[in-house]
Simulated scan of single mutants.
Amino acid sequence: MRVLVNAASDVVRTGLESMLSTAAGISVVGSGIGMEKIASQVEELQPDVVLVETPSEEAMAGLLEFSSRMPTLGIALLADDSDGRKTLEALRWGVRAIMPRNSMTGEIVGAIQAVAAGLVVIHPEATEALLATAPSIEPSAFTKLDQSLTPREVEILSLMAEGLGNKEIAWRLSISGHTVKFHVASIFSKLHAATRTEAVTIGLRRGLIMI
């Protein structure tokens, strides 16, 4: 598993590299301080997971915009979050793991492995802080969250990821082409996607499907 490390200081960067160097199955392919060059590093080194420590909101947004062109890239974030707001925002950005900066080696390694497997990891401390923010969320905010795909829609999205067209999907699932078209339209609507490629990319990034 290829991991790129990025931290806010040289001391933290060195510590994270040393920590991961002893973990079985993990290879640190590069590291950096600050977010200025991380996009070029990701493009050059092709990591499976990027471990980022305390980035700014602007920097993280830039990384996620870049990573949208690499749907298999997972991002794990090390950041302290006393009120849960950073955790909530990071999840909206697309971060797959959120851990405190003082997490133990085993916790960080486990989070990286989970992210590489397409899972989402939230540390118990972050979960408590996140839940504490729930009462303050306006009800209207929930209407902005994406609706969940049905099992059939996930199945069709997976076949779309294989490059199958509507007729091929209909034949594979023994359903009508009209039904497939209906499900595809629903997938586009729920994922806010305009094309099949965009829908598949979003599905991969969110761990809905795997290829």
Rank of each mutant, 00 (worst) to 15 (best):
78 L>R: 10
121 V>T: 12
107 E>V: 13
60 M>R: 02
104 M>H: 12
76 A>L: 08
133 T>A: 07
85 R>S: 02
61 A>K: 13
94 G>I: 02
112 I>Q: 00
75 I>A: 13
71 P>H: 03
102 N>E: 12
93 W>R: 14
138 E>P: 00
62 G>M: 11
139 P>A: 07
107 E>Y: 04
125 E>Y: 01
114 A>K: 15
64 L>T: 11
129 A>H: 09
125 E>I: 01
98 I>D: 01
119 L>W: 11
103 S>P: 04
79 A>Y: 13
69 R>L: 13
105 T>R: 15
105 T>Q: 15
123 H>C: 03
83 D>K: 00
87 T>I: 03
104 M>C: 04
101 R>C: 11
118 G>I: 00
100 P>W: 08
112 I>W: 06
114 A>V: 08
110 G>M: 05
61 A>T: 14
68 S>A: 15
120 V>N: 06
130 L>I: 06
101 R>A: 11
103 S>A: 15
139 P>V: 02
79 A>H: 14
103 S>F: 05
105 T>F: 08
107 E>T: 07
62 G>D: 08
133 T>D: 07
95 V>A: 03
104 M>F: 06
130 L>N: 05
129 A>S: 10
103 S>E: 09
82 S>G: 06
117 A>R: 15
138 E>V: 00
71 P>W: 10
88 L>S: 07
118 G>Q: 09
85 R>A: 07
119 L>E: 15
109 V>Y: 10
90 A>L: 06
69 R>F: 12
85 R>C: 10
84 G>E: 03
116 A>D: 14
107 E>N: 02
79 A>L: 14
68 S>C: 12
115 V>W: 12
122 I>P: 05
67 S>Q: 10
87 T>A: 00
125 E>H: 06
125 E>Q: 05
129 A>W: 03
63 L>S: 08
61 A>F: 12
131 L>K: 12
75 I>H: 09
108 I>V: 15
74 G>N: 11
73 L>K: 09
83 D>W: 04
78 L>I: 04
90 A>M: 06
87 T>Q: 00
96 R>S: 14
120 V>W: 10
108 I>K: 10
117 A>S: 14
91 L>P: 04
114 A>Y: 05
70 M>N: 12
117 A>L: 13
85 R>M: 04
107 E>A: 13
139 P>R: 09
115 V>Y: 08
81 D>W: 11
111 A>P: 01
90 A>N: 04
97 A>S: 14
123 H>I: 01
61 A>I: 09
71 P>A: 07
127 T>H: 09
58 E>H: 14
129 A>T: 05
90 A>Q: 02
72 T>R: 15
139 P>F: 10
69 R>C: 09
102 N>W: 13
133 T>F: 08
139 P>Q: 01
82 S>N: 06
